[in-house]
Nucleic acid binder design. Structure first.
Lengths: 273, 273
DNA sequence: TCACAAATTCCATTATTTGGAACACGATTT
DNA sequence: AAATCGTGTTCCAAATAATGGAATTTGTGA
């Protein structure tokens, strides 16, 4: 096992940076990505409009994806992601060493704060949540795990970005189209870079209702010595119950947790341990 | 949304049956599959030995997979599945209508029995677990969900197979290599077909420690009227706490739950509802 | 029944993948 | 310090698969 968790980020960044060709596979994944990111179910024609592929081509791509179990088509001719993806993800998750190592540490943070704790990793231009600890176990599995969120408006995302050099941050954010989720959402590269300066100085980042109104969080950056891992850990809470002053009080606790996580990664996932 | 859940199964069966070509994509997925199903981490050379591709070719495939975030490579040069798969799976799961509809129904079964309840769907020649309800919430997420198991030695698997015609069952099992997990594991197609006759007659299937010693279960088949869905629901328990006689007493309860699930699917996932 | 739209199939052209061999790198041995 | 071995990586002509425009089929509503 290894620190798989973030080679991806770097490689994906590389792709973003140099636009490396991934041929047929890339096109197939683009189709999956369109379907994954569409809020509504898509029919063939919808897909045709969103991808810019000719009909015949798209049709064959879709057929292949279906034959591979990566895509499925229902009675009403709309497409959804296939179950084979569940199988792969289940393995990817259960074998992830970083997550495994991190678990007891983030659990401790949850016990100290009583609020929801998230562990997220930078993957390309998004943050993917690897784990989550919360009190109310009523929330269903997969509810947040595997979820991909923008970097520029989440605590974990900004924390993870803060571990990269400005040039790399620019490369990552270059092709991202900013969406103003709330009035406080940062909506351009310069604003993000500006805030990263503070985050690097303080060792913590905040999401001041930038992604979802009524929800804020405090997060801190996790990075391995070799720069292969860019991640973050956060404590999230609703504004009505937990004021910003409380988040600020948790700052050092979160920072220490992040430090502990970074150290654990260096100690346990280093080259030849 | 739709009954995506199982078109896959049929299409995948189709692939198994007629060996439909999926070109470059199929080869890439084969690589992922090798990595997913290997118990130990693989390095490039290991992968080379397991796939039967020439070096140059495999190398490019792997590079593309990495660039797409489907694969990641760690410090010790071993490969693991990439985090992008988590993202896709998270969407696939949260949008799955069957799972959503089934949830309250399987929860009821759990409350009635007090034991772990699984919901699984036939996908190609495997069963993929879509959901799980259990008392001890200590078990981690993804622990079972997304898990792919053989059909021939699980209660849910045999139940799902029982909804297909014998010819289709043969097509599905044709390329499966049977593994004798325990002394009671059925290890050939004829034995399975034979047992399916009983399952179709009784409406329930049992896993008599066929997959794991000390664990047995009672399951029942779920199918939609249009034959697009082949699934099963089960109650699993350790033999030391729950005797076979108890499983048998639960038979009708499980059968009724499965009936309820089939009806719910027909009612809520039919062509134009 | 007809007309229209959506989905699917077809196939000569074009682009990508293939795979053998040569190259580069690092670790261990001589 | 040089040679060797086991890896991983790059290259490019030949082989193969993907492309995309147009024709065909299927499904739907009037």
């Amino acid at each position: 096992m290894n620190v798989e968790t973030n080679t991806i980020a770097l490689k994906a960044n590389a792709k973003i940076a140099n636009g490396r060709e991934t041929g047929t596979l890339g096109k197939a994944m683009d189709v999956l990505e369109i379907i994954a990111s569409s809020p509504t179910p898509l029919r063939f024609t919808d897909l045709l409009a969103l991808s810019n592929q000719p009909r015949g081509t798209l049709h064959r791509q879709v057929t292949n994806l279906i034959d591979e179990g990566l895509l499925s088509v229902g009675r009403d001719q709309t497409y959804e992601l296939g179950l084979r993806l569940l199988k792969f993800a289940s393995k990817a998750w259960s074998r992830n060493r970083f997550r495994e190592i991190a678990e007891p540490i983030i659990r401790k943070l949850h016990e100290a704060t009583g609020e929801t704790v998230h562990l997220g990793v930078l993957n390309g231009s998004e943050v993917i949540y690897l784990d989550k600890v919360e009190s109310r176990q009523t929330v269903r599995m997969y509810s947040q795990i595997g979820n991909a969120s923008p970097t520029y408006c989440t605590g974990v995302g900004k924390a993870a970005l803060s571990t990269l050099e400005d040039a790399k941050v620019r490369a990552v954010l270059e092709r991202v189209k900013f969406k103003k989720y709330t009035t406080t959402t940062l909506d351009n590269v310069e604003a993000v870079l500006n805030e990263l300066t503070d985050i690097r100085r303080d060792g913590v980042s905040f999401d001041r209702e930038e992604h979802e109104p009524g929800i804020h969080c405090v997060a801190a950056p996790i990075a391995s010595r070799d720069g292969l891992l860019a991640a973050g850990v956060s404590v999230t809470a609703p504004t009505f119950r937990v004021p910003m002053s409380q988040l600020k009080e948790w700052s050092s606790l979160v920072r220490e947790t992040a430090k502990e996580l970074s150290d654990a990664v260096d100690a346990r996932l280093s080259p030849r341990s």
